[in-house]
Amino acid sequence: MGTYILKRLLAMIPTLIIISVVVFILIQLPPGDIISASLASLQQQGMEVSTEQIAALRAQYNLDLPMPMQYLHWILNFVQGDMGYSIKYEQPVNTLIWERLGYTIIIAVASLLFTWVLAIPIGVYSAVKQYSVGDYLFTVIGLLGLATPSFMLALILMYCAYTWFGISVGGLFSPEYADSDWSFARFVDLLNHIWIPMIVLGTAGTASIMRVMRANLLDELGKPYVVTARAKGVRPLKLIFKYPVRIAINPFISTIGWLLPTLISGEAIVSIVLNLPTTGPLLLQALLSQDMFLAGSFLMLLSILTVFGMLLSDILLAAVDPRIRYE
C-alpha cells in the first residue's frame, strides 16, 4: 500500500507540471495585459504616464521577460508559496485566496456528502424495486435535478427560503458574523447558510449518481455470485447490501476524484448567484480583468485540489477492492 501511494504521488508530478503550463497559457491567452488595461483607464482619466514608468511597472511584474522566463518565474515563486500580487485588488494573492479556497472546499465536501447520503440509498431502492412507482418518481425528480441549470435552482431555492421561512439566504454568514472571529455561534450561522449551496450543488450530482447506481446495481444483481448467495439462503436485504451494493459502490469511490472538479465548477456559478465568499466570483473577476497572478493561482490551486482528490479516491478504491490492492 505504501509503495502504491508513493508511486501515485510521483506520477502526479509530471501531470502537475503539464497543468501548470496549460494554466499559464490560459491566463496569457486574452489579448493585452492588465498593465495596458489599467493604463487605458488611467489615460481616460487624463493622467499622463511616461514610457519609463510603464517599463518599470512591466519589469516589476516580469512582464518584460520572454514567455518561458515569465513562466519559470511564476511557477518557481508559486512552488515556494509566493503567488504574486493581485494588481486589481492591490493585495498579495496569498491574503486573498486562502479563506475563499477554504470555503470552496467546505462547500464541495458538504455537497459530496449530501450527494452520497441521498443518491446511494435512492439508487439501491430504484434498482431493487425496478419499474415501481417509487422508481419512476425518483427518476422524474432526478431528471428534473439534472436538467435544471444550477443558477436557476439556486434562485428558486432562495425564493422559497425567503417566502416560506422569511430568511434571506445570500452569503455564507449573517452580517453580524461576517467579520467576527470563529465561535460556536458563528459556526451555527454557517450551518444556517451552507445548506442552500449544498442542496443546489448536490442536486445535479445526486441525480446522476442515483441513475448510475441504479444501472450498476441492476448489472450486479444479475451476476452469478448473487445467485450463489441466494442459493445459500441469505435473506434478501442482507444479500443486497452485502454483495451487489458493496460491489456497485466501488466505481463511485473512484468518481470522488472526478466529482470534485464538477462540484468546484458548479460552486463557481452558484456562488456568484448566492453571493458566497468563495473562489468562484473572485476567479471570474480576475479572469475578466486579466489579473493574471490571481487567476493563475486560483486555476492552479483548484487543479491541484482535483489531482489530490483523484489520488485520494484511488487510494480509497484500493482500500476497499482487494483486486486492486493485490495488483
Binding site: L26, P31, W258, I264, A268, L283, L299
Partner: peptide, 24 residues
Amino acid sequence: QRLIEVLQSIPTLPLWMALSAAVP
C-alpha cells in the same frame, strides 16, 4: 491519456471561463 488527464483535472467551468474570457 496524460493530456486527457490534465484537461480533466482542471475544473471545467473555470477552464471554460478562462477560455471564453480570452475571446476578444
